[in-house]
């Protein structure tokens, strides 16, 4: 085991996970995945559907336990879900019976932060995601993109050490998705956090990531390639370097159909 260098935030070592389906069928989902994420790094885990990338994220979140290997956050082992890792879900997962403001307040409220203070925190991050004028709305009154911005504000309001985003824009239409990518880059630039962002969209990965890990297109999931995206921000989808890298990633994506 190598000693952890000071700016390593998350370290995954030799993680494997096998699910048991229908009582006896074993499905190996992840095999021997090791991954380090640096402080304030925007890491994108890229891969097609059914490649184990969401399971990897759920293991880091503590929602699944790995069969072998370990996850450490700031050198202490992850044993279960906790507020130091803020999760953003593909299907938003907002409380339908609460206003936008109350939804964003969730984390501080669960920790027992007094009302005035948690209001203040929630308002700050609603402003960050550009939804200040919607604080009294209910989720059903918002568009998909707005709902996910509430989800992102909620994750920020809990002041996590790292943010885990599980295909957060998977339910959005193409235009909204592009807009949300721009917004995510802007928000992250304003409030730097360590981010692990799971997606199946190459353009999204290239637009957002400092680093992209590409997972193999079949189970069990393993890390196939790694790309350092050393391009200035805000990025341009038509930048030549970016397009060259895009072609390379597509070449090296292994799809099993």
């Amino acid at each position: 085991m190598t000693p952890t260098s000071p700016d390593i935030k998350i370290r995954c070592e030799n993680i494997s996970k096998t699910f048991i389906q229908k009582g006896h069928m074993e499905v190996p989902v992840i095999r021997d995945v090791s991954l380090d994420v640096r402080e304030n790094e925007f890491l994108v885990v890229l891969g097609p559907g059914q490649c184990g990338k969401s399971t990897l994220l759920r293991i880091i979140a503590g929602l699944e336990t790995p069969d072998t290997g370990s996850v450490t956050l700031d050198e202490s082992p992850v044993t279960g879900p906790g507020p130091d890792r803020g999760m953003v879900f593909q299907s938003y997962m907002l409380f339908a019976w609460k206003t936008v403001l109350s939804n964003v307040e969730l984390g501080p409220k669960l920790r027992g932060v007094p009302k005035d203070q948690r209001r203040e925190i929630a308002r700050k991050y609603l402003e960050l995601v550009g939804l200040s004028s919607f604080e009294k709305h209910y989720p059903h009154q918002l568009s998909g993109g707005m709902k996910q911005r509430v989800g992102i504000a909620r994750a920020y309001a809990n002041d996590p050490k790292i943010m885990l985003l599980d295909e957060p824009f998977g339910q959005l239409d193409a235009q909204t998705r592009m807009f949300m990518q721009v917004e995510t880059a802007r928000i992250w630039d304003q409030e730097k956090r360590t981010v692990i962002f799971v997606t199946n969209n190459i353009d999204e990965a290239l637009y957002l990531g400092d680093r992209i890990v590409l997972m193999r297109g079949k189970l069990p999931g393993v890390i196939h390639h790694e790309y350092l995206v050393d391009l200035p921000r805000p990025r341009d989808h038509t930048n030549m370097d970016l397009l060259r890298m895009r072609a390379k990633i597509i070449d090296e994506t292994e799809l099993v159909l």
């Binding site: 979140a61 503590g62 929602l63 279960g80 879900p81 906790g82 507020p83 890792r85 803020g86 999760m87 879900f89 299907s91 997962m93 409380f95 019976w97 969730l106 984390g107 669960l110 920790r111 909620r154 809990n158 885990l164």
Partner: peptide, 24 residues
């Protein structure tokens, strides 16, 4: 169930999940 998982990742206790999520 995903809402329950969400609450867990936000640090909710079992009792908080029951009163603030399951009952509503």
């Amino acid at each position: 169930p995903v809402l329950i998982q969400m609450a867990r990742t936000y640090g909710a206790t079992n009792w908080q999940i029951f009163t603030q999520l399951c009952i509503p």
